Amino acid sequence: MGPIETVRERCRKCYSCVRNCPVKAIKVGPDWAEVIHARCIGCGKCLKACSQKAKVIADCIEGTQRFLRGGADVIAVLGCSYAAFFNDL
């Protein structure tokens, strides 16, 4: 799982996300354009380019809550862009 997912029902294969991805991390299948998670850098350009709102930020809340409820110790590693993105906190 990566930072950006495709809502398959919304995708109309317009190629906007493909044209705007700086690292060519989107492949077009028979029915929708899908993010290649191994290549995705999470820049969000596909989110802005998609007029169908088919590209969305991945929701990892349930998985995170499952880790926190478990008995093992949990460590969070923040990306280097954290301080810039949340500069108002």
Rank of each mutant, 00 (worst) to 15 (best):
M1S: 12
E5L: 14
V7S: 06
R8L: 15
E9G: 14
E9T: 13
E9C: 09
R10P: 06
R10Y: 12
R12N: 12
K13T: 05
C14T: 03
S16A: 15
C17W: 03
C17K: 02
V18A: 01
C21G: 01
C21Y: 01
V23I: 10
K24E: 15
A25M: 02
A25I: 01
P30G: 15
W32N: 02
W32A: 05
A33S: 09
A33W: 00
A33F: 03
E34C: 12
V35Q: 01
V35F: 01
V35Y: 00
I36Y: 06
I36W: 08
I36F: 08
H37V: 05
A38W: 02
I41L: 10
I41A: 04
I41G: 03
G44M: 02
K48L: 14
A49H: 03
S51F: 14
Q52I: 05
Q52T: 05
A54W: 00
V56M: 08
I57P: 07
A58W: 01
A58H: 03
C60H: 10
E62H: 04
E62N: 07
E62G: 03
G63E: 08
T64Q: 08
Q65R: 15
Q65K: 15
R66V: 09
L68R: 07
R69I: 04
G71I: 02
G71V: 03
G71Y: 03
A72S: 15
D73R: 14
I75V: 15
I75M: 15
I75K: 11
V77R: 10
L78Q: 06
L78I: 10
G79F: 10
G79Y: 07
C80R: 14
S81I: 05
F86R: 09
D88H: 08
D88L: 11
L89A: 09
